[in-house]
Design a protein around this nucleic acid. Structure first.
Lengths: 107, 107
DNA sequence: TCTACATACATAAGAAAATTATGTATGTAG
DNA sequence: CTACATACATAATTTTCTTATGTATGTAGA
């Protein structure tokens, strides 16, 4: 029901960190959630590609220690996108909390 | 990413309300979330059928004002299922909040 | 040296879940 | 008699995620 959660997480991390590469994102999420949320590559990379195709992210490649890293950075449009996705996610989470914490209805 | 949210909402409502029928569930969710979450029939009915097939819900039909209502009620297994789904959802929401509320990292 | 594991990217096949579009049928209000 | 609300249901499509692969390099240990 909460669509685009992965995209929202990616955008938020890039808002806070300026530039990150895919593998780094998986490790950061794993670290921040103490292993409770593990991003799979099969979900992450297509999501990154889509965000780039949509114009929210831009990329540049650097070779570090002989391995290529594809860095992602927010575009200006991406900056707007984060704000809108974050408030959307918050609104949904708030409503969900409301529904799931319901007290029994006493008749 | 949060799979089974709709099922969790349904199960929680039935835990609080003992018995409900499909249309009633859509109206209750709409009312509680002031229209922010609207369940579509195409999602709701298949979800109810699946929960029944899984043994979490049982049904009985009543005719009210000439219209048939198919009521759903939690089974004992469904009662266990609610608890487990609720704590799973809460854990996920907590981690998501953590990720989405991150402060910028000052370097 | 060879093996295992971590780093780093990517795609394809399939499953799961939702949206959108229909369809049936009855009651009520104008 | 028309429109809208009530009440259920399914089919087609789309979206999103999981699982399974595949390539390639660096590092640590046996």
């Amino acid at each position: 029901m909460l669509k685009g959660t992965l995209q929202t997480i990616i955008l938020k991390l890039l808002e806070d960190n300026n530039r990150m590469y895919g593998y780094e994102i998986t490790q950061k999420v794993k670290e921040l959630t103490t292993g409770e949320i593990m991003l799979t590559e099969g979900a992450l990379y297509p999501a990154l590609h889509k965000l780039e195709a949509d114009g929210s992210l831009e990329t540049f490649t650097e070779v570090v220690d002989g391995r290529a890293r594809k860095y992602y950075r927010l575009t200006e449009q991406g900056g707007d996108e984060v704000k809108s996705k974050l408030s959307e996610a918050q609104a949904f989470i708030d409503q969900l909390q409301l529904l799931l914490n319901l007290k029994p209805i006493v008749k």
